[in-house]
Design a protein around this nucleic acid. Structure first.
Length: 217
DNA sequence: ATCTGGTGGATCTTGTAAAC
DNA sequence: GTTTACAAGATCCACCAGAT
């Protein structure tokens, strides 16, 4: 909204963050978040991804607790990627999370990225309430709604803070790697390319990436 | 012992409203 | 009409607990 600030980020404290200091200024002992939006290109080791003879990843694919159904296609338009994430249209994953209607069970959530015209639309379809999908303009907005409801029915007063892209799996290195392999991904200007080494020195329970069974529900 | 997912909180960005 | 301040939402980082 402030073109002047975007054009030249001022060192002077004119932003809203600085305009809201607490009156008493309580002492801060934990200086977290040392850097802000400075994504650098790095190399990461990721598990070996099973592929077909053409070299394409075999879908659906289990990555951690998530299952990648489809990778979609990279959209070159502006709001379909950031310096950290790519939002391919048609991207589909499923993951398990707490139910929003039954406090004692978990359900599978089907997450999809749709083309909203001027930007991506993030759709989440709970397995227990498929007639009530959650659609938002951001991944965080969509998942915040789910998390709030899940906490509400459990009478939990958490902060409800979630990382939408992480919940969509876009923060997973393996999934990032697969998305980067999509056509035109290397032409995205704002996206900061990362280097992934398949079959790197990884261990742990989620190190293995295996093809998912089609009948997982 | 190591790794991952989940949780909590701090920080940043953006939108809106009010004052000049 | 422009600038400043406030507010809300979104994003990211660090820590903790559980599983292998």
């Amino acid at each position: 909204m402030y073109p002047q600030q975007n054009a030249a980020p001022p060192p002077t404290p004119t932003s809203s963050t600085q305009s809201r200091p607490p009156p008493e200024q309580p002492p801060r002992v934990k200086p977290k978040r040392l850097k802000a939006h400075t994504v650098t290109s790095k190399s990461y080791s990721i598990p070996l991804v099973p592929r077909d003879k053409a070299g394409k990843p075999m879908l659906p694919l289990n990555v951690g607790i998530m299952t990648v159904i489809a990778l979609g296609s990279v959209c070159m338009r502006e709001h379909f990627h950031t310096e950290r994430y790519i939002f391919p249209v048609g991207y589909e994953v499923t993951r398990r999370y707490l139910s929003t209607i039954n406090p004692s069970v978990e359900v599978v959530y089907h997450c999809t990225i749709l083309d909203g015209g001027d930007g991506p639309k993030f759709q989440i379809v709970p397995a227990d309430t498929p007639e009530r999908p959650v659609i938002a303009g951001t991944a965080t907005g969509a998942w915040s709604s789910i998390v709030k409801q899940a906490n509400a029915i459990r009478n939990r007063q958490h902060s409800n803070s979630v990382s939408g892209p992480d919940f969509f799996g876009l923060g997973q290195n393996t999934i990032k790697h697969l998305i980067q392999e999509l056509p035109n991904a290397d032409r995205l200007r704002d996206y900061v390319w990362q280097n992934f080494i398949e079959g790197g020195p990884l261990g742990g329970r989620h190190a293995a990436v295996i093809p998912a069974l089609p009948e997982e529900y």
